[in-house]
């Protein structure tokens, strides 16, 4: 701050706090709802302060069959499915992007630019716009209701390949030259030099991709019909539908809370990485 005006300082903080309240309000209300019992959640006005039923709701949601009267998998199972999907998508994307970026930057081979453009084009094809035919492909390959079907079609990613390409291009040429004089073969160079040097970028990308994977909605909705394969994010919609008959908002909001905890935790715990990854991947 250039000038030192106390009033300005106070106004600044007040506005920021107001902003935080607005941003955090929906989450606060979710949390509050998850701490009351079912009966309290049926009386208007709904509470604005937490009640004492958090752990009861927690165990009931996590290990019970979830919502009474709906046929869904237990929540712990859904969390597990979400975790598997998010991990497979983020790790898979990182591995194949690292490999293809390595090939494109460090090798001269026929059709190199052709491959590059083929990958680039996927930047323009989000899953939402080719949803039906992609679904057909996955169905034909017999990958419905499987972790493979959930993750592999979302794995190819031009953004990650671009980012690694960018990272590799900023690594001085002399690293490779020096390594070659030291006697490193291509894959040795990849593992000994390139991977350690891109460590922070890999971590940053992991945060972004984990959130991307965890939060997938439309794709799992189409691919999974088996309740055992339901992801936690999907289940919220099913619960909302069920809520029209028997609203158990305490359980629904507890589920919502559980669904947002892993990605929120990752963002906050790895904030530095995440900000770096976000502002560098997209730019």
């Amino acid at each position: 701050m250039v000038e030192n005006r106390p009033i300005l300082k106070i106004v600044t903080h007040l506005i920021l706090i107001f902003g935080i309240v607005i941003v955090a309000l929906p989450i606060w209300i979710t949390f509050v709802a998850s701490t009351h019992d079912e009966a309290r959640m049926l009386q208007a006005p709904l509470p604005l302060l937490p009640g004492g039923h958090f752990f009861e709701n927690f165990t009931k949601t996590l290990f019970g069959s979830g919502l009474a009267g709906s046929e869904v998998a237990p929540v712990w199972r859904m969390l597990l499915n979400s975790m598997a999907m998010a991990m497979m998508i983020s790790i898979g994307k990182i591995i194949i992007s690292l490999l293809s970026a390595f090939a494109i930057v460090y090798f001269k081979f026929p059709f190199r630019m052709g491959f590059f453009w083929l990958i680039f084009i996927t930047l323009m094809l989000p899953v939402e716009v080719r949803i039906l035919p992609t679904f057909e492909v996955v169905a034909n390959l017999g990958m419905l209701n499987s972790y493979w079907g959930l993750s592999i079609p979302l794995i190819a990613s031009a953004t990650a390949t671009f980012m690694f390409r960018q990272v590799f291009l900023t690594i001085p040429d002399e690293m490779l030259e020096s390594a070659r004089i030291d006697g490193a073969k291509p894959m040795r160079f990849f593992f000994d030099i390139l991977l350690p040097l891109s460590r922070t970028n890999i971590a940053a990308l992991f945060v972004i991709l984990f959130i991307y994977g965890w939060n997938q909605y439309l794709w799992p909705l189409l691919i999974t019909t088996d309740t055992d394969m339901t992801t936690i994010v999907m289940s919220i919609k099913q619960m909302l539908e069920a809520a029209e008959q028997s609203p158990q908002w305490n359980i629904i909001m507890m589920t919502a809370l559980l669904a947002m905890i892993p990605p929120v935790f990752v963002v906050i715990a790895m904030q530095k990485m995440f900000v770096k990854g976000l502002t560098e991947t997209d730019k």
Binding site: E174, M175, R180, I181, I193, R199
Partner: peptide, 20 residues
């Protein structure tokens, strides 16, 4: 011959030390 097989060593302008 590959650089590694020529029995040479090189000092680069920016040193090219492996930072990690």
């Amino acid at each position: 011959l590959e650089p590694a097989d020529r029995d040479i060593a090189m000092v680069f302008q920016n040193y090219a030390l492996y930072p990690h």
